[in-house]
């Protein structure tokens, strides 16, 4: 198969993700398998590329939350088809992020957005959902050998839960093993500093950039 033809498939996948066209993504993904095109590269150069472009449009305020959600639906539809065809050698261990919304808050749009963009950026993301008690977040991070805990909240009432997570990490001797990043409406850099978080991101794309910065651009463990 020529590089040119492969690239045509990758571009088509990327465009279909950007166009929020789930059906088309599935169609092309099946053809990728049939044509024996490398699934890993189809994910990286097709699906993830499309999601990154969507993330850029979100940052530029051309796409909003509805568009990003449908782009990510399309990306995940493609991943479901292509993932089983990835070679084992290609599966390097990637940095793992445990993400959740702190107990007392059930707003998870922001968290879902961060999860999607981190997925697209190549991180391995474990989603704990919403309304999660601090101890449970820490336990999950330890059990998963996570490199990052990412916490989000929209409500000021649950901000203390973020501080609790860091305190439990300290008391259990795990603070140095994991980076903690925080975000969400009421959170600010000064709050992040005060509770001793490793970073603060004001938006979902900023969360991706923040992790790239913290890990010096390497997503591999």
């Amino acid at each position: 198969m020529s590089d040119n033809k492969e690239q045509t498939f990758f571009t088509a996948l990327s465009d279909a993700v950007l166009d929020m066209d789930e059906v088309k993504v599935e169609e092309i993904a099946h053809r990728v398998i049939k044509e024996k095109i490398d699934a890993y590269r189809a994910i990286e150069n097709g699906l993830v590329d499309g999601m990154n472009r969507a993330g850029q449009l979100f940052e530029d305020e051309e796409y909003f939350i509805p568009e990003i959600l449908l782009c990510s639906d399309a990306m995940y539809a493609g991943l479901n088809i292509l993932n089983p065809y990835i070679n084992r050698e290609q599966q390097r261990t990637r940095k793992k992020v445990v993400i959740g919304v702190v107990e007392g808050d059930t707003h998870d749009i922001g968290k879902n957005l961060v999860k999607t963009l981190l997925d697209a950026a190549g991180f391995e993301v474990v989603d704990l959902g919403r309304d999660v008690p601090p101890a449970q977040i820490v336990n999950a991070a330890i059990a998963e050998h996570a490199d990052v805990i990412a916490l989000s909240t929209l409500m000021t009432t649950t901000m203390d839960g973020m501080a609790s997570v860091i305190k439990i990490l300290q008391e259990s001797g795990h603070r140095d093993a994991v980076k903690v990043i925080v975000g969400g409406g009421p959170i600010s850099q000064s709050f992040a500093d005060r509770i001793g978080a490793d970073g603060y991101a004001p938006s979902a794309p900023a969360a991706v950039k923040l992790l790239h910065k913290l890990f010096k651009d390497s997503i591999y463990a």
Partner: peptide, 11 residues
């Protein structure tokens, strides 16, 4: 649900 509603806005 906010996520559902966001999808419905387009779909």
């Amino acid at each position: 649900g906010a996520v559902n509603l966001s999808r419905l806005v387009l779909k």
